[in-house]
């Protein structure tokens, strides 16, 4: 015993140091690119910062007061929520329909699935350019197909819809996979028992399938609400916030304030709001989950 202890002790200390060395790169990057900027952004949002990123003075909550008095910011805030309200439910609906169509294995399901998840292989900026062409008011396929004359990118009523449709197209591959996986994991016996008890398809869907896949539903909703708070890419590529600021979102405004106007204090204040909102979305979803979700 003594002997074993004697060997163990120096090895343990060596283990301590080498163990720490192994996680050092990850820890270093976490501190450098996540925690440091996080703290710095909060500090900047409470200060006056010059265009080279140096703090000149303390501002307290002035930046936030200015922000909430700013029409422009309120527009970004409303637009971001408007996007979330349009995107999240519609995306869920589309993905549930797709999942219901193929969750029972039959001939051709694998083929259909491949088609549904194909958009996952296209990057945002590529997809955005293709959608720009599809929705082009004069030469676009969409206006022709539906026989309409919508000025998609010049009409404040419609520009956000193009972004919503593009985002659904990009999101549905993953969400569809998650939902179809959840539907398939429901034991056959449960569905058969329901059928024997005379439950029709609709009843089975609302009273058995929906409750049983609710954890996945909540995951998808929480994730997409959070993504909505962070929307910027398609705005940058397709609309640059226009027309008439109708697609200007929070992260897009943060980008403009920070990089175009060199206004780091305001940019950081917006970052803090975005950060709080994205956390709030997750928190709300989890709270809701505790009440409404049925776990097996």
């Amino acid at each position: 015993m003594n002997n074993a202890d004697g060997i163990k002790k120096p090895r343990k200390r060596k283990n301590q140091i080498s163990g720490f060395l192994y996680i050092l790169p990850a820890l270093f990057i976490a501190l450098l690119f996540s925690y440091r900027p996080f703290v710095k952004t909060i500090i900047n949002s409470l200060s006056i910062v010059n265009y080279s990123g140096t703090i000149i003075d303390v501002a307290g909550l002035d930046n936030f007061k200015r922000l909430f008095a700013d029409r422009n910011f309120l527009t970004s805030l409303t637009n971001t929520f408007r996007f979330a309200v349009m995107f999240v439910p519609l995306n869920l609906l589309v993905c549930i329909i797709l999942a219901l169509l193929v969750y029972r294995k039959r001939k051709g399901t694998a083929f259909n699935e491949s088609l549904f998840i194909m958009p996952l292989s296209v990057a945002m900026s590529s997809a955005a350019i293709v959608f720009q062409a599809l929705f082009n008011p004069t030469i676009g396929v969409i206006n022709f197909l539906f026989n309409v004359q919508v000025q998609w990118f010049n009409d404040p009523k419609w520009a956000m819809w193009v972004i919503v449709i593009l985002c659904i197209w990009m999101a549905m591959g993953l969400d569809f996979l998650l939902l179809v996986g959840a539907l398939r994991s429901i034991p056959k016996e449960v569905l058969e028992a329901a059928e024997l008890d005379g439950s029709n398809r609709l009843q089975t869907f609302f009273h058995i399938q929906i409750p049983l896949i609710s954890p996945t539903l909540m995951f998808v909703i929480a994730n997409r609400l959070r993504d909505s708070m962070l929307l910027s890419g398609p705005v940058l590529v397709m609309t640059e916030g226009g027309p008439f600021r109708s697609t200007q979102t929070l992260v897009y405004q943060m980008y403009v304030e920070g990089f175009k106007s060199g206004n780091y204090s305001m940019g950081s204040a917006i970052s803090v709001i975005v950060f709080l909102l994205s956390l709030a979305m997750i928190a709300v979803s989890f709270r809701f989950e505790r009440k409404g979700v049925f776990y097996q």
Binding site: K12, N15, Q16, I17, S18, G19, F20, Y22, I23, A26, L27, A30, F33, S34, Y35, R36, P37, F38, K40, T41, N44, R226, L230, S232, V251, M254, Y255, G258, F259, Y264, G267, S268, S271, V272, V274, F275, S278, L279, I282
Partner: peptide, 28 residues
């Protein structure tokens, strides 16, 4: 490996998931 504050450090690294990169982009 065994080392001090292992659990805490694990959470510190994992919790970076909650800090959205896009909101940190100015400082980075």
């Amino acid at each position: 490996k065994e080392f001090k504050a292992k659990k805490l450090l694990f959470i510190v690294i994992l919790a970076t998931m909650l800090l959205p990169a896009d909101a940190l982009i100015l400082e980075n």
